[in-house]
Design a protein around this nucleic acid. Structure first.
Length: 366
DNA sequence: TAATCGTGGTT
DNA sequence: TAACCAAGATT
């Protein structure tokens, strides 16, 4: 650790803080979660921003705060509505954990987000980054909030050649922040590091000539700013073959199924589907039998109307989409519903399901 | 530690 | 177009 951070002793910390924070106060973006320092809103924004772009988050954040303006309202909401508010954002366990944690804050902390590292870190979905972000931004506590931006910025400023893709590297950058952070303005300091990473110290072509802390930056002085940070590459996605079926009843309502409460897309809704990874499971009769065996759906597949591809972070789904008919004695249950497309307010539909729906609607036009 | 967990924009 | 990227947490 000492060796990796040996450039820390060469930084004029006071000047660095001042240059960074002054720039932030002048250049920061006007974002909806910066209108006040309500710990609940800071919390919601930080969860939404995990692995998600600012431009994507803004409309989701505004609508979420409209629907659930306080800890109390979110705690009282039912999960289907909460998931619907997250529909399309991805990483859905984030909002299920947030919902659970907000309920805990309501009963255990009398509705007040805790302001100590130990307590806030026990909340579901609140890891090291989010704990530091809420504590510093909402409460002014000088804790590190190390995200991808901070690792990139500090790897350049301090010329740190650790692999930032390794989980163990985060503690190196946390230690650096503990040395550098302003105890007078920890909120501005942490946000400034991230804002600098987002606007100036970008991954591929950093705008060093516009950088307010250029003179403090070891990578700039050595001309290696585009070689940092070091980040090892991830494995590529595994490909999975699926079959899905769109089943309409007499009214034109479509059959959807609630996914399991854990794992991928937990508790979201989908058109009936299953894996068909064996080559032998590739014709219509075989797939019909699989729906009967695996899902207890007694149905007739009409025709294959097209294919849908959907890319996850670790999977690629290639889905053959069928239309079909289901036996008249089928009955609805908690996990199986016929729904009108005009009344899906209580059913969060992930993007792959919406791709199937679009294919089906185009097919119906003809 | 390495996998899992989404989606859409950028290079 | 394929790879990469974006304010990570959990298991």
């Amino acid at each position: 650790m000492k060796n990796v951070l040996n450039n820390l002793t060469k930084v004029n910390i006071k000047e660095f803080q001042d240059d960074l924070i002054t720039w932030f106060k002048n250049e920061q973006r006007d974002l909806p979660w910066r209108k006040d320092q309500d710990p609940y809103k800071v919390w919601v924004s930080e969860i939404m921003l995990q692995q998600t772009r600012v431009d994507t988050v803004i409309p989701y954040f505004n609508r979420f705060i409209e629907w659930f303006p306080t800890i109390e309202t979110l705690a009282e909401a039912n999960e289907d509505k909460v998931l619907k508010a997250w529909e399309g954002l991805g990483y859905y366990s984030r909002v299920r954990n947030l919902h659970s944690a907000v309920k805990e804050v309501k009963v255990k902390y009398d509705g007040v987000v805790p302001n100590t590292p130990k307590e806030i870190s026990t909340l579901k979905g609140v890891g090291p980054y989010t704990a530091g972000a809420i504590l510093s931004i909402a409460y002014g506590v000088p804790e590190p909030a190390v995200d991808g931006n901070v690792m990139r910025v500090l790897s350049r400023i301090l010329s740190i050649w650790e692999d930032i893709a390794k989980p163990s590297s985060r503690k190196v950058f946390e230690q650096a922040v503990r040395e550098l952070i302003s105890h007078e303005e920890p909120s501005e300091f942490n946000q400034a590091l991230m804002e600098l990473g987002a606007l100036i110290c970008t991954p591929t072509s950093p705008s060093c000539m516009l950088c307010p802390v250029r003179e403090h930056c070891h990578a700039f002085h050595e001309g290696v700013q585009t070689e940092l940070p070091i980040k090892s590459q991830k494995n590529k996605q595994r490909e999975v073959q699926l079959a899905a079926v769109v089943l309409a009843n007499e009214k034109g309502d479509l059959l959807i199924h609630k996914r399991p409460e854990s794992g991928l897309l937990a508790n979201l809704w989908e058109f009936p589907n299953l894996e068909i990874n064996h080559p032998i499971q590739n014709n219509r009769d075989q797939i019909t039998r699989l729906f009967e065996q695996d899902l207890s759906l007694n149905l007739h597949l009409d025709k294959m109307i097209g294919q849908v591809e959907h890319v996850f972070s670790h999977l690629i789904w290639k889905i053959k989409v069928y239309t079909g008919m289901i036996s008249t004695d089928f009955t609805e249950s908690q996990e199986w519903k016929f729904v009108s497309l005009d009344h899906t307010d209580d059913y969060a539909l992930p993007v792959f399901t919406q791709k199937i729906l679009k294919l089906y609607q185009e097919y119906k036009k003809e």
